[in-house]
Structures are given as structure tokens and as C-alpha cells.
Design a protein around this nucleic acid. Structure first.
Lengths: 232, 232
DNA sequence: ATTAGAGGATTGTTCAACGATCCATCAATA
DNA sequence: TATTGATGGATCGTTGAACAATCCTCTAAT
């Protein structure tokens, strides 16, 4: 019985696969990948003709892809000048962390009403990060860390909060490129994350929130210090 | 001296006015206006040819405008079917209020560190709403109410939070169209808003938060009731 | 009443073209 | 020398047309 019970939901869950992405969205996916992994460093100018030829799509389609990524804050569009890979300023980093504080602390406080599955999801990403660290893959550690924090905000069980967090974290990755040694940036937080996940699992949201705020302060300070150093 | 002190900032603040132009953005502005004020009710299909001829722009330009508004959640784009004015479901309304609770309560708690000017701005929109009510302009009362709540979130002094709130409230206006009599929906909250603004001005963020949460509950329930009634 | 198919209408995507704008270069002037 | 002004090339902004792919409606057949 349980096998056939939820067939309607399973079908509607598969729907996004059906209305497959348009050409512009596929192009946006490719570009997003290259921006996030640093192949296209901040400040790079994306010429319509060059990129269009490279990917084999028309200028119009490409421009739609540019619009998509501009609204994800990964590209900036300057009239009559073209699109550039976003270059975060120190103020942007501070603002991103300000918004993360709001969303993630709200997520932590919602742990008491969150579905147990969502709480387990937080812990899962902690293990994911530790496994990646054991393998020495510090880029993967960074990815797991993003997922960990996204899972914290997801405790609110709000699609809009979730989408906002995803965009915030993608944007933040633009700032990571200023960090030279990824290991030094990510390694210390593995323990912090494990501790926060444990507190959440135990329902101790007050201490979890306190730990989380401490993490924000140090991580933000670390990033901003790297920014200041780059200036010099 | 003070008149010439901040000229650099004033100039750079005027910058957005300068690079304002793109035809697609202007078209998006026009469409947004018509969607928000109800001229284009939810569910309306926007034919590329029809709208393009009406506004005198080419299909390509119009499609860029559609993209812009789709990412503001005001339009939905269905592949090979066209774009439609977004039709909010009850779940959307609940989710919007969930996110408002997060952002606005955070704003209220930030009143202790917010710049005084930002606090005064909240009160200003209360008066704006009362003036509109005296004039019997209930659409303007609704606008003032939006600005009031946006000003509360703005206490966080975060550009990203501010932009997110603006988008959330624009989206919520799609739901207001189910309310028949706008006066019945907006009038009771004039007093609530005044009380909350007074509490904020006094720095009593605890009671302000309590009042605000009460407002969210009743307003959301009222909207959802109207949705349920529409179904019947 | 349901299914199958044909035809028309609309969208998806590309291409070519032209005006508008920006940018680098170089000449002219103080 | 440094600033200003003009020139030309490159790129963007926007349009219009074209064709394929897809959807919708209507009709016919079972």
C-alpha cells in the first residue's frame, strides 16, 4: 500500500525534469560553474561575441543567460559596457554575513519545531565535510560547509528562505578566491560545525545560536582581513 | 564646510540614475506597475506579440523584460506556453509570511543599534498611512503599510535584507487582489502600526516584537481565509 | 464519451543589420 | 608636461525576419 500511496507526489516531484531547461538556462549553468570554481575570476569581462562563439549560442540566448546570473548576483551588467564577473567589496562580505546571521539564527531557533529529518540533514553535512577533509579535498570541504549552513537555514522549512540562502552562499564563494590556502580557512570550522550540529540534535538552540554567532564573527573577520591584505 | 564635505558620496549616490536606461528595464517597470496595481490580474497571459505591439518594443527586448519580472516572482514562465501573471497559492502566502516573520522580527530586535534616522522613518510611514486613510484612499493605505514594514526590516541596515523585503512585499501584493474590500483589510492595522512604531521609538523591542507577531498571525489568517473562500 | 489526428497559432532560437555608446589613441593647447 | 578635445574601431542595444518546435483547438472516428 505504501508503495502506491504517494504516487501523485512522486510524479509531481519529477516534473522539473520534464519542463527541461531552456538553452539560456543551460548556458547559465555552465557559466555559473566556471564562475564559482574560479575559472572566471572576479572582474573578468564576458564578451558577448567571444563567449557566444565559444559555447555555440546566439547573442540573444547568451544575453538571457547573463540576465539570469546577474540576478543571482554572480555577474554585473553595465550598460553599453558588458557583463563582468562580480567583484565583491568588503562591504558586500559584511552584508552577506549580516543576512546570514538573521537567517541562520532564525533557523537555529526553529529547531524545536523543525521536522526531525531536517535536523538529521544538518549532521549529515558535518560528516560529509569530515570525510572530504580526510581525503584532503579542501574544495569539497568548502562545499560541505556551504551545505551545512544551508541546512541550518532550512530548519525554517521555508522555500523562500532556502532559495535566498542558496543565493547568498553562491555569492559568498566569489569572496573565497581571495583566500590563498583553503585548508587554513576551512579546517578550523570542522569542529565548530560538529559541535553546533550536536547542540541542535540535542535541542539546545540557545548554545547553538551562541556558537554560530561566534563562528560568523571569526569567519567574517578572517575574510575581511584577507581583503585588506589584498589591497596592500 | 558640511555642504561640501560629502560631495563624493552624493555624486556616487546619483550614479544609478545615470546608468538607468535599458529598454528591457523600462518595459519591466511598466509591466511591474500594472501587475502590482491589479491592471493585469493573476493568471493573465502576456502574449509576446500583443504586449510587444502595445509597448512598441521587439520580441527580444520584451522577453528580457519578462525574464526580469519572472525572477522577481511576479510572472511565471512556462516553456512553449508563454508568461503569465503569477497566481499565488495559499502555501505561497504562508511562506511569504514565514519569511517576513524572520526578517521583520530581526529588524525589530536591531532597533537598539539602528541609526535614529531609520527609526524615525518607521514612524513617518505610519503617519503616511493615517493621512491616506483620512483621504479615503485605501490603495495608498496599503502602499504605506508596505513601506512601514519595509522600514522595520531596514532597521537592520542591510542592503540585501532591504532588497529581499521589497521583493517579498511586491509578491504579496499579488495576494491582495483576493481581498474584496480593501478598507476592511487595511483599516484595523493602522492602530497596530502606530503602537508598534511608538514601542520602537521607545526602544521597547520586546513588546514591539510581540505586537508584530500578533499582527502577522491575524493578517495571514485573514488572507488565507479569503483564499479558502475564493475556492468555494 | 473517449481517442486520434490535422491545422493554426505561439513560442524558442538564430541570424543579420544598424544606430548608440564606450574606449584607446593621438593631436592640440596652455 | 599635463590637460583637453577629436577621431575611429570595437562592442553593446535593439530591431525585424525567419524557421523549427511545441502547444492548443477543433473535427472526425471509434
Amino acid at each position: 500500500m505504501t508503495a502506491t500511496a504517494g504516487w501523485a507526489e512522486r510524479l509531481s516531484a519529477a516534473r522539473p525534469v520534464l519542463d527541461r531547461a531552456s538553452a539560456a538556462e543551460l548556458v547559465a549553468d555552465v557559466l555559473r560553474e566556471n564562475v564559482i570554481d574560479g575559472s572566471l575570476p572576479p572582474g573578468t569581462r564576458l564578451s558577448e561575441e567571444t563567449i557566444g562563439n565559444l559555447l555555440g549560442v546566439s547573442r540573444n540566448t547568451l544575453r538571457e543567460a547573463f540576465r539570469l546570473l546577474s540576478h543571482e548576483n554572480l555577474l554585473v551588467h553595465e550598460l553599453h559596457r558588458g557583463v563582468f564577473v562580480r567583484k565583491l567589496a568588503a562591504a558586500d562580505v559584511a552584508d552577506i554575513y549580516a543576512m546570514r546571521r538573521v537567517l541562520e539564527t532564525a533557523g537555529v531557533r526553529a529547531v524545536v519545531t523543525a521536522p526531525p529529518e531536517a535536523v538529521r540533514e544538518v549532521g549529515r553535512h558535518v560528516e560529509e565535510g569530515q570525510a572530504a577533509a580526510d581525503a584532503g579535498d579542501w574544495v569539497a570541504v568548502g562545499t560541505a560547509n556551504m551545505r551545512f549552513h544551508r541546512a541550518i537555514a532550512a530548519l525554517l522549512a521555508s522555500p523562500r528562505v532556502d532559495a535566498t540562502m542558496a543565493r547568498l552562499l553562491a555569492e559568498l564563494r566569489l569572496a573565497f578566491h581571495v583566500m590563498g590556502e583553503l585548508r587554513l580557512f576551512h579546517e578550523p570550522y570542522l569542529e565548530d560545525n560538529a559541535r553546533i550540529a550536536a547542540l541542535l540534535a540535542a535541542g539546545d538552540h540557545e548554545r547553538a545560536e551562541w556558537e554560530l554567532l561566534a563562528y560568523f564573527d571569526t569567519a567574517q573577520a578572517q575574510l575581511l582581513a584577507a581583503f585588506a591584505e589584498r589591497e596592500a
